[in-house]
C-alpha cells in the first residue's frame, strides 16, 4: 500500500490546571491510542460526535499539535521530528468564516499565502488565477475585500488558499459547516475534482450523506477511540441490515406478529403505535423476498402505506454511537 498517513497508538491528553496553584485539575484524553493508515489519493473521512477527537487528529497531522505518545507519520515524515518537511507538502482548510484576512481582497489573500509558501514568481499569478477558477469564485469579486463575501464564497476562497502550495495532502476540517445546500453541494464537487487531481484528503464532517458520497474509507471516532473503520459500503454491511421496510396498518394481532418474526427473511422487527395506526419496521438483507412473505402473512389486513429504505451511513453512526438507544 502506498501510505500517505501512518498513525500508531496515537494519544493526546489535555492537562487542565488550576489558574492559581497550577495544580493539575484534570486530564482530558482527547485521543486514546488510535491507529490507522491512509492510502495516497484516498479521501479518508473522520466522523464522530463533538469532542470525539476529530480536530485533535487533524491538528496533530497538520503539525499544529504534538501528540502525548504514539507516532504519526505524514508522507513518511514524523510529525514531531520533521514538521517543516510536512508543512511543505500539506495544507489545511477549516470550516467557518474565519481563517482569512478579512480586510484583504481575494487576490491579496492568495498573494500573501503564495509568498509565505515561496510559490515561484514565474508561475504565481497563473496558479492564483487557476485556483480561484477551480474554486468557482467569480472574477469580478476577486478585488473585493473578503469581509464583504458570503460564507460560501469565503469557504471557496479557503479551498483555493489551501491549494496555493500545490499540496500532496489536504486536511478539510468540517469544510461545509454552515453552508446552504447548494453551496455545500458545490463544495463537494470541488473536493471530487481534487481527488481526480490526485490529492490525498482527510475529511471531517458531521454530515453523514456527505461522508458517504465523498469518502473512500471512513473512521468513526468516539471518546478518542476508533469505533469502526472501513468503506461506507462495508460499514453499512457490517453494522446494519441492508433494507428497512416500513408498513402502516390499521391493526395487527399477536398471532400475525409471531408469524412475521418467524419468517426466514426478517432479521429484526419492531412495532410502534402512531396516530391510531400500527407502524411495522422490518430489517432485512433480502428486500423482495421479505416483502413477498410479509404480504402473505398480512393477507386480509388493510395496509395503508409501504415504504422501503436502504440503510444509510447515518444508521450506522446512530447504531454505533447509541443514538437509537438514547431516543427510545
Amino acid at each position: 500500500m502506498n501510505v500517505a498517513i501512518d498513525i500508531h497508538e496515537l494519544r493526546r491528553d489535555y492537562v487542565i490546571r488550576s489558574i492559581l496553584s497550577n495544580k493539575i485539575k484534570r486530564v482530558v484524553k482527547a485521543l486514546n491510542g488510535i491507529s490507522f493508515k491512509v492510502k495516497k489519493g484516498e479521501i479518508f473521512g473522520i466522523l464522530g460526535p463533538n469532542g470525539a477527537g476529530k480536530t485533535t487528529t487533524v491538528k496533530i497531522l497538520s503539525t499544529l499539535l504534538l501528540p502525548t505518545s504514539g507516532t504519526a507519520k505524514v508522507l513518511g515524515y514524523d510529525v514531531e521530528k520533521h514538521p517543516i518537511e510536512i508543512r511543505k507538502r500539506i495544507n489545511l482548510v477549516m470550516g467557518g468564516e474565519r481563517n482569512l484576512y478579512q480586510r484583504l481582497s481575494t487576490l491579496e489573500n492568495m498573494e500573501y499565502f503564495a509568498e509565505l509558501y515561496d510559490v515561484p514568481l514565474k508561475i504565481r499569478k497563473k496558479r492564483i488565477y487557476d485556483l480561484l477558477e477551480l474554486a468557482g469564485l467569480q472574477e469580478e469579486r476577486w478585488r473585493d475585500k473578503v469581509e464583504t463575501y458570503s460564507k460560501g464564497m469565503k469557504q471557496r476562497l479557503q479551498i483555493a488558499r489551501g491549494l496555493i502550495n500545490d499540496p500532496d495532502f489536504l486536511f478539510l476540517d468540517e469544510p461545509t459547516i454552515g453552508l446552504d445546500p447548494i453551496g455545500a453541494r458545490e463544495l463537494r464537487n470541488i473536493v471530487k475534482k481534487l481527488k481526480r487531481m490526485g490529492k490525498t484528503i482527510i475529511f471531517t464532517t458531521h454530515y453523514m450523506q456527505e461522508a458517504d458520497e465523498l469518502c473512500d474509507r471512513i473512521a468513526i471516532l468516539d471518546k478518542g477511540r476508533i469505533i469502526t473503520i472501513g468503506t461506507p459500503t462495508d460499514l453499512k454491511k457490517m453494522h446494519t441490515e441492508k433494507f428497512q421496510i416500513e408498513l402502516i396498518l390499521s391493526f395487527i394481532t399477536h398471532e400475525h406478529i409471531e408469524r412475521l418474526q418467524n419468517l426466514k427473511y426478517v432479521n429484526h422487527m419492531r412495532t410502534k403505535e402512531l396516530e391510531k395506526n400500527i407502524h411495522l419496521f422490518i430489517d432485512t438483507q433480502a428486500c423482495s423476498e421479505a416483502v413477498e412473505s410479509v404480504f402473505n402473512v398480512l393477507h386480509g389486513i388493510p395496509i395503508q402505506d409501504v415504504s422501503i429504505k436502504k440503510s444509510t451511513l447515518e444508521d450506522v453512526y446512530v447504531k454505533l454511537l447509541g443514538g437509537e438507544h438514547n431516543q427510545s
Partner: peptide
C-alpha cells in the same frame, strides 16, 4: 482572525515572516 495557525504552519523561515 484565525490566521495564526497558517502563520505557524508555513514552512518559510520565521525570521523572514
Amino acid at each position: 482572525q484565525g490566521t495564526l495557525i497558517y502563520t505557524i504552519m508555513t514552512p518559510k523561515s520565521k525570521f523572514v515572516v
